[in-house]
Each structure stands twice: as structure tokens, then as C-alpha cells.
Amino acid sequence: MIEAFFNIEIMKAAWPIVLTGLWNTILLSLIVVPLGLLGGLILALLASIKNPLVRWPLMAWVDFFRAFPPLVLLVLLFAGLPFAGLELGGFACVAIAFFLNTGSYYGEIFRAGIDSVPVGQVEAARSTGLTRMQAMRYVVLPQAVRNVMPDLLSNTLEVVKLTSLGSVVAVPELLYEARQAQSITYNPTPIVMAAVIYFLLLWPLVRLLSRLENRALAGRR
């Protein structure tokens, strides 16, 4: 049992490979999370324009990408686009798929946050001469983000986990590298290493999330 899953020799041998994977996972997250946040923010700001010509296409967009499984989207981009003469590579495909998928989720969270800010806040801001955009930027968004911070963090947690999908399109992130090491050594220990690293990477975020959620509950009482 220990030989199979916690083999010290294999750990030593696989360590450099797994470490490369970890850096790539971190790098991928650092690209994909801000990209998703940015996409979400743009969607939410567009949604705050109460114009049916903007609103309906936007809702269709968000619904479509929330209903579309991210793995299918990723494979479609990776395997399909070359037939349209566009070869993007795994990394770019992950970035685009995540921008579309998680951007829609982040967008819904930002939208809920913007809706949670009382109308009186905008009225007060506008009555002092601030433009719509200024009121949004200085008055509404700071409150909106604070109100939905637990949801933003929770979604971010999901996004970091989802980066393991990159392994399907040969992006050398943590899971991909661990599987490489496993196939070289004929031993599942590298996978166990990856699992432990994922846990250590995400657990602080989970703790932080719990604290934020408790604080939000306490604030409501």
C-alpha cells in the first residue's frame, strides 16, 4: 500500500516534474482568474444598462456559457478551431474557454452585487454631479464587490480547480505533469502528490472563505 501510494523514492524522482506542474497551475490561475474577473465585470456593467437591445443578447450570452460544460468548450476550441484554420495551442484555448465560461459566472456575481446596492446611493452621487460611470466606479462598485466577496472567492476556488482541465489539451499544469510522472514510473504516487499540493494550495482559500461567510452571517444578525 505505502509502496504504491506514498513511495518515497518515486516522490524524490517525480518532485521536479510535479513542481513544474505546480508553477504552471499557479501561472494558469494568475492568467485565468483576472481574465474571468475582467470579463465578468464587463458583462455586469453592460447589464446595468437597462436597454433591451443590450440586455437580451447579454442574457443569452451568459446563459449559453453557463449551460455549456467548460470541458466540452475547451475540447471544442482545441480540436475544432484548427479546422477553421486557427491553431491556438492548449494554453490559449484554456484562457479563452475560461474567459467565456467563468467570465459568465463572475458576471452574474458582480451583477448581484451591483443590484444589492440601494438606488439611493446612485441618486446621492448623481445629485452631486457625478456621471453614471463615476457613480458606478466610486460609489456602487466598491460596495458591490464587498457585498459579494464570499461569492467571488468561492468562484475563484472553483476556477483554480478547473485549471486541471488544461491537462486534457496538454497544458503542462499540475495534474498533467503528475500523470506524466505516473506513466514514467508506473506508480500512482505522483498523483497523490498532486492531490496533496492541490489541497495545500486551496485550503487557505477555503478557510478564508469560511471566515468571510461567517462574518457575513454575523453582519446580517
Binding site: P118, A124, G129, Q143
Partner: peptide, 15 residues
């Protein structure tokens, strides 16, 4: 609007 101050029932201060 800069020349027209407004005070609201619910204050509407930025929290």
C-alpha cells in the same frame, strides 16, 4: 446638478 444640493430622507451616505 452641482448647483443644486439635495438631502434625502435616508441620508444616502456612502458607507
Amino acid at each position: 446638478r452641482r448647483r443644486i444640493g439635495m438631502v434625502f430622507q435616508s441620508f444616502n451616505l456612502y458607507p
